[in-house]
């Protein structure tokens, strides 16, 4: 073995090292974004303007006025309340899931359980093509094309509203949910279906009472991963949300999300200012949050595989 040429050993070293890159990347992302976010917790100068209490508790806009939650980082007295951004993010995510989950799960059920083989061959790639549409294109369509239409149909006061942005966001979430759910349903062994049909169940009863429960961890994983995708998506929300940091749960109002705030403001911020550090702090939160949803999603997929293969 020791007589192998040096070039071969070099290549093998590269191969072994390359495997570490993914782990290193994750750790470095955390470190390098965390490093810029840390002054929010540690630097007295930054904390005075944008400490944790300023980010999460209501603050009076001026002396003597009642305390409020507001995000106005560029004003004489900068205000950094993250609450409007949280509400905006959660609001649009819920709206998008309201559209995405029934459509994606229904379509997954149809392609895996009811569709003829030839139909599946056509439908599945077409739905997967949704994933190929860049999010900036979906944002463009939501901003230019569907916004006025949605406003008129639902009689809303604002052209750029949460409902419209949520529907566009749903198109980005659907391929994620569909692919994972379809995978989970297809991995249920055929013997389950045959047994159920043999007992006299209809194909719908089989799908609903046998296949769906068997694939449940995978279906749940699909929902969780879709949720993570919706929280982190940036361009659609940046273009179609109106970017108004108002504290409102109304789906007819504009909003401002965490991700869009970073995208819109980081370009113009002074490096090292409290505002700059707060934007990285938002980045850390997005990172941790999507990390957790991904982790949970994977856990459920693994559980599904164990369940179906009988392995422990």
């Amino acid at each position: 073995m020791s007589r192998r040429p040096a070039s071969e050993r070099l290549i093998e070293t590269f191969i072994r090292l390359s495997a570490g890159v993914a782990i290193a990347a994750l750790v470095m992302i955390f470190i390098f974004i965390g490093k810029e976010a840390l002054p929010v917790l540690t630097s007295p100068k930054v904390r005075e303007e944008a400490g944790l209490s300023k980010l999460f508790l209501p603050q009076p806009p001026a002396a003597g006025k009642p305390a409020r939650f507001s995000w106005q980082p560029v004003s004489k007295v900068p205000k950094y309340s993250l609450l409007p951004l949280f509400v905006g993010t959660i609001k649009v995510t819920l709206v998008s899931l309201l559209f995405a989950l029934p459509l994606a799960l229904g379509a997954a059920l149809f392609t895996s359980e009811f569709a003829a083989a030839w139909l599946k061959e056509i439908v599945k790639p077409v739905i997967e093509l949704l994933a190929a549409i860049p999010s900036v294109v979906l944002g463009f369509l939501a901003l230019i094309v569907t916004a006025s239409y949605v406003q008129n149909v639902f009689g809303l006061d604002f052209r750029l509203n949460t409902l419209n942005a949520g529907m566009a966001l749903a198109l980005a979430v659907i391929p994620v949910v569909y692919t994972v759910a379809e995978d989970a349903l297809s991995s249920v062994p055929n013997s389950f279906r045959e047994g159920s049909i043999a007992l006299g169940a209809t194909s719908w009863q089989t799908a609903w009472r046998v296949v769906l429960p068997a694939a449940f961890p995978g279906i749940f994983a699909a929902c969780v991963l879709g949720f993570g995708r919706a929280i982190g998506e940036t361009m659609i929300v940046l273009m179609a949300s109106g970017n108004a940091a108002v504290l409102s749960w109304n789906a007819g109002h504009p909003f401002r999300s965490l991700s869009a705030t970073v995208a819109a403001e980081l370009g113009e911020v002074v490096k090292g200012s409290p505002h700059y550090h707060v934007l990285f702090f938002i980045g850390v939160m997005l990172f941790i949050f999507t990390f957790l949803t991904n982790f949970a999603g994977q856990m459920f997929v693994t559980r599904l595989k164990e369940k179906l293969t009988g392995a422990r």
């Binding site: 993570g228 991700s259 997005l286 982790f295 994977q298």
Partner: peptide, 15 residues
């Protein structure tokens, strides 16, 4: 790590 990397939001990669 690879699966998690795939789920990190694009904007976080930007940061």
């Amino acid at each position: 790590a690879i699966q998690n990397l795939a789920g990190v939001p694009a904007i976080v990669f930007g940061l």
